[in-house]
Design a protein around this nucleic acid. Structure first.
Lengths: 253, 253
DNA sequence: CGGGCTATTGACGCCTGTCAACTACGGTGG
DNA sequence: CCACCGTAGTTGACAGGCGTCAATAGCCCG
């Protein structure tokens, strides 16, 4: 029953895509057909600019657990997710792994420092991305102040998200982290007009643990705790229904 | 003895400032006299642009524990530190405090989301800052792609620093965090050509604890541990001499 | 020399990690 | 359609790292 309603939402997305495409010169530009554009940094472009943009970018697919790039690799490309989810992570020398963030459709990534990626990026499930050559995009930015302004905005926004995460990892307890995580992911889905309750978690427990600075056992226990206190319902391992959003918010402090 | 050598370095900074000023039309522009400019986002400006820049910015002083702005406050200004140190932090509803970052001379701050500051900023000791009106600076950015590119670069750089901190808070042990902290602060000082060994810590133990997601007791214990294993010497509470940088690096994993 | 603040150190407890057993689920083959 | 297997998730027992609370030590300044 619930699963059906989720499917309906995913289908609705495809409809949106078709509607966007209708008014355009079909087939000439990939970008014009892109359903995620309203939520992506390229939303600031007009129709003409969009055609140019389609040419300087290309599409690539990745499947589950495939790496888009690795940390310390020389950075050549920047990416924009059009479908699917990605995790970005850093590895310690002894094998410990910290997930820096989960990225969703519309997210731009590949930020770099001294020409090297600062993290590895790996597909969670099937993923479709737009690929931009770094130098090409940079040249484009010089000519298009609107675009570079947009890029500054989303980078600043990512920075505030990272800073919020610093607070979470520095001060919150396991319960608080878990509550905060579920709310965040629900909000994230709402932002791109996807069903935000129940929430479907694309990542597994290990990923959640590595993201929250916890272990898989603790994550599991905390989910059980939220479940037994009737704040959430666990429809399946990856389907969480939020019973009481208020209580969940209070847990985030 | 060691204190003297530190003073020498501070004096040397003043000399640099004088040298920079020599070739300029003295007194007409504040920016031309600014010693921290080579390490600040305004370094990309030429002499003429600098004169304009002096006019659209103003100088302000803050003393120890004074707040420059508070989280959730409507953001009007952006700041650039010219002297002293600042902590940016977030407060939880129950009073817990997480220091997001320490900022040093040359650092630009005031990033915001939805028109509100995402953190509070407070002076550590005496501080001098450049103040920019947000809208004025934005207008300036439109006309000056070099400047907005520079701003994008430093924002992207801050983002990578924030991401590194996510790894530290998510995965490192207390010892590792402490080692990482001391090295970072030493590197930071080296970057702006200040004495990087011994390191003088402008912040107190409580600040370090709130920064590293630990308690004051643990910070103190970890410092003692590094001291007894001869990796550092504690000249005074705020003066740390690094005996063995290699061992310290190894502790950061 | 004494007051007040900051830092250090000790005793103890709890939260979360570790390790391992158990359970649930999805896919595959008979 | 069911039995089987492998993977992912849950749960339990236990341990240890770090927090908590408090006493002590060190330092600055009057």
């Amino acid at each position: 029953m619930l699963k059906l309603s989720i499917m309906a939402v995913e289908l609705k997305r495809d409809n949106v895509r078709c509607e966007l495409a209708k008014g355009d010169d079909l087939g000439h530009t990939r970008c014009a057909l892109c359903g995620i554009r309203p939520y992506s940094f390229c939303r600031c472009l007009n129709e003409d600019e969009l055609k140019v943009f389609s040419k300087i970018s290309s599409e690539r697919m990745f499947s589950d657990k495939q790496n888009i790039f690795l940390q310390q690799e020389k950075s050549k490309n920047l990416y924009n997710i059009t479908e699917g989810n990605i995790k970005i992570y850093q590895l310690l020398t002894d094998g410990r792994l910290q997930i820096i963030g989960f990225l969703y459709p519309g997210d731009f990534f590949g930020s770099y420092r001294q020409g090297k990626y600062n993290y590895s990026a790996q597909a969670i499930g099937n993923v479709k991305v737009c690929v931009f050559n770094e130098t090409t995009l940079n040249k484009h930015l010089e000519k298009n102040p609107k675009l570079s302004r947009e890029l500054l905005n989303i980078t600043a926004n990512e920075l505030t998200l990272a800073q919020d995460r610093i607070r979470v990892l520095g001060k919150l307890t396991a319960t608080e982290r878990m509550a905060n995580f579920i709310l965040n992911i629900s909000d994230q889905r709402a932002r791109i007009k996807w069903q935000d309750n129940p929430v479907s978690l694309p990542m597994n427990r290990q990923d959640i643990a590595d993201y929250l600075g916890l272990t898989i056992a603790t994550v599991s226990r905390e989910i059980t705790r939220l479940k037994t206190s009737n704040i959430i319902k666990v429809l399946s391992a990856s389907q969480i229904y939020i019973n009481d959003r208020t209580k969940l918010s209070l847990l985030c402090t």
